[in-house]
Simulated assay, not measured.
Amino acid sequence: MRTSVHTYDDDEYNPREQGVYVGHFEMDSATAYQEARDITGASVHPVPKYAHQTLYYTSGGRWVLRTSSQREGSQLRTEYIDAADAKAWLRRNQDDDVIEERFGQEPEEVGPRLGGRPAIGPKWEVRLDAEVRRRVAEYGQGRPRADVLRDLIVAGLAASTQA
């Protein structure tokens, strides 16, 4: 069965909003994950009372979230979501086996690093060709690359202001 997918003006579930068509998927070839419910029968996901969700993984590898409500006059909401939102949905649903199947095994522990060197400033990324990387490594003589690059940048800036 072909199912339409829409985008919506707001991030919050509005049972009367129609949405704008952005695509479709074949529900029969998608894998469905039903929401978990608490002891009262309510969804464990942040949806209004009487609303329920089903997450689909399509044959094309996309995630689709379908939200429905038992309230009269409400519209079915079907939208694409990214992998991070799908993973968060599955985590709230306590579907650890599905997370491992779709996203790979998670580390045993995740959290902020405690200890180590304090941050000096915001992170910058740069791409260097092989020859420049070789020269930086040679210049650094085994010192940490970040320290060597900082020293080279400071020295280069100092030389350019003296010229």
Rank of each mutant, 00 (worst) to 15 (best):
S68V: 15
A119Q: 15
D82L: 10
S69N: 14
I39C: 01
G140M: 02
D129Q: 01
V5F: 02
S69K: 11
R66D: 15
Y50S: 09
G19S: 04
L55C: 04
D129P: 04
D129M: 02
G142L: 05
E72G: 08
G104E: 06
L65G: 10
A163E: 11
D96Y: 14
A163Y: 03
I120Q: 13
P15L: 00
I153A: 09
D11P: 02
S74D: 15
S160Y: 08
T31G: 02
I81M: 14
A158E: 15
G19I: 01
T40K: 10
H6S: 01
E109R: 15
R2F: 00
Q75M: 12
D147P: 01
S59E: 13
R150C: 03
A137W: 04
M1D: 03
V136F: 11
A86H: 10
R150A: 08
Y50A: 05
V154G: 01
Y13G: 00
L65T: 09
Y50C: 03
P122C: 02
T78K: 11
E108L: 15
E125V: 10
K123W: 07
E131D: 13
D147V: 03
Q105C: 01
E108T: 15
E125G: 12
T161L: 12
E72P: 08
D97M: 12
R66C: 14
V47I: 13
G116M: 06
L157T: 06
T67A: 11
D96W: 15
N14V: 02
V110F: 09
V132K: 08
W63Q: 03
P107K: 14
R77M: 09
D28K: 08
R145P: 01
W63A: 03
D151R: 11
Q18E: 10
A30D: 03
Q141P: 00
G142W: 11
G116T: 03
Y80D: 09
V22C: 09
W63Y: 14
G121Y: 10
M1C: 00
L152S: 04
T40V: 03
G111S: 07
Y57Q: 14
R117L: 11
G115P: 11
D151S: 11
G140I: 04
D10M: 02
S74Y: 15
Q70A: 13
F103I: 06
S74G: 15
G116F: 05
V148N: 06
E100S: 11
H45V: 00
Y50D: 07
E12M: 00
G140S: 03
E26T: 02
D151G: 06
